[in-house]
Simulated scan of single mutants.
Amino acid sequence: MIKYYYPDGSHCYRALHTAHAVFRNEAGALIARAEKPDGSALYEFEITGFELVVAGERCT
Rank of each mutant, 00 (worst) to 15 (best):
I2M: 10
I2N: 00
K3H: 10
K3T: 12
K3Y: 07
K3V: 11
Y4M: 11
Y4P: 01
Y4A: 10
Y5G: 03
Y6D: 11
Y6M: 15
P7G: 14
D8A: 10
D8V: 10
D8K: 12
G9V: 15
S10F: 06
S10Y: 06
S10R: 15
H11G: 00
C12Y: 08
C12M: 14
C12F: 09
Y13V: 12
R14K: 14
R14V: 14
R14P: 02
R14T: 12
A15G: 08
T18I: 12
A19K: 04
H20L: 15
H20M: 15
A21H: 09
A21V: 04
A21T: 07
A21I: 06
A21F: 06
V22G: 00
F23W: 13
R24M: 05
N25V: 09
E26K: 01
E26F: 00
E26V: 01
A27C: 00
A27L: 05
G28K: 03
G28P: 01
A29Q: 13
I31M: 10
I31C: 02
I31E: 00
I31H: 01
I31W: 01
A32Q: 05
A32T: 06
R33K: 14
R33S: 02
R33E: 02
A34S: 13
A34R: 07
E35Y: 12
E35G: 09
E35C: 13
K36S: 15
P37Q: 13
P37V: 04
P37I: 04
D38L: 11
D38T: 11
G39E: 07
G39H: 14
S40F: 10
A41P: 02
A41C: 15
L42M: 12
L42Q: 12
L42K: 09
E44A: 07
F45K: 06
F45A: 05
E46V: 11
I47L: 03
T48Q: 02
T48M: 05
G49V: 02
G49D: 05
F50K: 01
F50D: 00
F50P: 00
E51I: 03
E51V: 03
E51S: 05
E51L: 10
L52Q: 03
L52I: 11
L52E: 03
V53F: 05
V53H: 04
V54T: 12
A55F: 04
A55D: 09
A55K: 06
G56A: 03
G56C: 05
R58I: 10
R58T: 12
R58K: 13
R58G: 01
C59N: 13
T60W: 07
T60V: 11
